[in-house]
Design a binder for these strands. Sequence first.
DNA 1: GTCTATAAACGGATAGAC
DNA 2: GTCTATCCGTTTATAGAC
Lengths: 213, 213
Amino acid sequence: MWQEHTTGTPAIIGRREQIYVHAAQLFCTRGFAATSMANIAEAVGITKAGLYHFVASKEELLFTLMSFSMERLEEDVVAPAQAIADPVERLTAIVHGHLQSVMQVTTPVGNPLTIILEETGALSADKAAQIKARKAAYSAFVRGTLDEIKANGQLADVDTRMATSAIMGIILWLARWHRPDGRLSVNDIVDNLAGIALRGVLGSGPATLERPK
Amino acid sequence: MWQEHTTGTPAIIGRREQIYVHAAQLFCTRGFAATSMANIAEAVGITKAGLYHFVASKEELLFTLMSFSMERLEEDVVAPAQAIADPVERLTAIVHGHLQSVMQVTTPVGNPLTIILEETGALSADKAAQIKARKAAYSAFVRGTLDEIKANGQLADVDTRMATSAIMGIILWLARWHRPDGRLSVNDIVDNLAGIALRGVLGSGPATLERPK
DNA sequence: GTCTATAAACGGATAGAC
DNA sequence: GTCTATCCGTTTATAGAC
């Protein structure tokens, strides 16, 4: 589906794929509500009516993109990590995998597929519930792994919900700001951020930090 | 300006303040583009035309809120931290201060003043440039502090831009998910997240982390 | 599959009465 | 300071020709 993934041979992608790529970029840049179907049609190079030959509605288009995004996360990040028994190793795989996944598609507007996942407010109640449930399952997977690490005495003295939030924050913020023309390589960015996240949540002795007075 | 700040005596706040509070909450929940002036008027309890007696335009309303939000950050977080000479102490104050600031206004939709700062795309070019410049100044302040820490050999082996991003991600993600009815106290959340952020970026010996194969 | 044309509703913003 | 009424551009979505 994603144009950037095609390599070598000239990209031959159908109208449907073109629509998804351009819609995701526009939703990401301007936001869902500020993007009109006419904007998307123009980006693709067809008319608004032509666009409706492929998609039933603007909302269905967003839902399709969100579902695809969650599918990538589940298949590319969660599934491989689930095969890892050791929780510290598993957490390392999750953090690196999710960061890699975010960096894999680098557009001038960040990572559209990750960013549009925050537009659940634009979906009808039942569609929003579906996406939220899949997000909650991912979050529970991360927290469960942190719980195991804590049970093994390998976690820093932190609440596992807070640790999950911190890790998510680091990853999702990357998706917002990263641009393909950056100074650092993909691997450098992943290593830096994963290092900070893992060092932050994993215990390395009883070194506690003081709050400022 | 902010309703939650009033204590003791019954809150007597003017129309203008009511408008700001409700607009910020709506912009935060639905997004700027998805919020109509009629929505805001209804929340305040006046008509759309009545609303225009107080605000010149929808965009000016957003800009006012964003400017106020940056003012709070600069006065409540940056200014006190600038008085601290030691860079590690200063970073600790910044992280705790910013987290406290985010937690100070806790609505059922997170922290509106922080979240609406991501709507610069809805502003005209010159207004957007003003807000972006103030954000960049804050970011440079954090990174400069990290540079000093690195020069003192007290930073983990990370790029200071990446460390800034990680810290921001942790704080901004909190602003998105936190709800006032939570299980943990404000201090617990601040301490947990600040601990993770500081432990992540500060060096505690040459303990490097390996990437998964 | 893509177009022109158009329906029906909603958006920001204003005029002018009270 | 708040209202009713209204202007006018834009929006989602559809009808129907080619």
